[in-house]
Simulated assay, not measured.
Amino acid sequence: MGNSNRLWAVMVAMLVTIGMAPTATMASDPDPLQDFCVADNSTGLIINGFPCKPADQVTVQDFTYSGLMKAGNTNNVDMALVTAASVVQFPGLNTLGISAARIDFAKGGLNPPHLHPRATEVLLLVQGELYVGFVSTNNTLFATVLKPGELFVFPRALVHFELNIGKSVALGFGFLNSQNPGRQVIAPALFTPDIKDEVLEKGFRIDGKTVDMIQAKFRV
């Protein structure tokens, strides 16, 4: 068999393998292998996820979480607060591939540009008026103004934001297709660590003085 034929054979084999891969490999989190697996954080065991609490110790309280009932404290620089309900706070979510968050906004409050590396998010606006959007990998902006009852979806791992442009407080709830979606806010991720100034100067088209000024704001 010639080199060209061997290459085609390898490519066909790879395509067949990918096509036959389990659907779970395409999901945000792996599919569960049992009815439930309430996270047991007392073991100290570190795995890709969390070990299961013994089934005979599981109660209905493990599947109930009240952490999103109360408004978050928006007395901060962003005038907004995200209250998470991931597997870390709500162990009953373990292996179920879902989590939630409450986002409270004071007037003018901002959930700054950030991303969730492991999840797509659907945002439901309950109160107020939000300017929301995300940026695609070719730097196209998809943004709109949300009214109460409307939904907006932020695709997985894309930078997105929400800004309260209404005349009063705003409240939204996010639902994510990962038990532990992660949240990385862009500005502090770049200006809090000790990244070489030249990287930031060239990356943002700014001078060293401006880099130092921005870094100071995130290192207080």
Score class of each variant (00 low, 15 high):
N3Q: 15
S4M: 08
R6L: 05
L7A: 08
L7V: 13
W8G: 13
A9V: 09
A9R: 06
A13M: 15
L15C: 15
T17L: 14
T17V: 14
G19I: 09
G19D: 12
T25S: 10
S28F: 06
D29N: 09
D29K: 08
P30S: 09
P30W: 07
P32Y: 01
P32S: 07
Q34A: 12
Q34P: 03
D35E: 09
F36Q: 03
C37Q: 01
C37W: 02
C37E: 01
V38D: 00
A39D: 02
D40S: 08
N41M: 07
S42M: 02
S42Q: 14
L45R: 05
I46S: 05
I46T: 09
I46N: 09
I47Y: 03
N48V: 03
N48C: 03
G49R: 00
G49N: 09
F50I: 00
P51E: 06
P51S: 11
P51D: 05
C52L: 11
C52T: 10
K53D: 04
P54E: 00
P54G: 05
A55T: 03
D56G: 01
D56F: 06
Q57N: 11
Q57R: 02
V60A: 10
V60W: 01
V60Y: 00
V60P: 02
V60N: 04
D62G: 00
D62F: 02
D62R: 01
D62W: 00
D62K: 00
F63R: 00
F63V: 03
T64G: 00
S66F: 09
G67R: 03
L68F: 10
M69R: 14
M69T: 14
A71N: 12
G72C: 13
G72A: 14
N75D: 15
N75Y: 07
N76L: 10
V77R: 11
V77W: 02
V77E: 10
D78S: 15
M79K: 15
M79C: 10
M79A: 12
L81G: 08
L81K: 14
L81Q: 14
V82T: 12
A84G: 03
A85C: 12
S86G: 13
V88F: 08
V88D: 10
V88C: 03
Q89C: 09
Q89G: 11
P91A: 06
G92F: 08
G92E: 05
G92A: 03
G92C: 04
T95K: 11
T95C: 01
L96Q: 11
I98P: 05
S99M: 01
S99I: 01
A100H: 05
A101E: 02
R102C: 02
I103C: 08
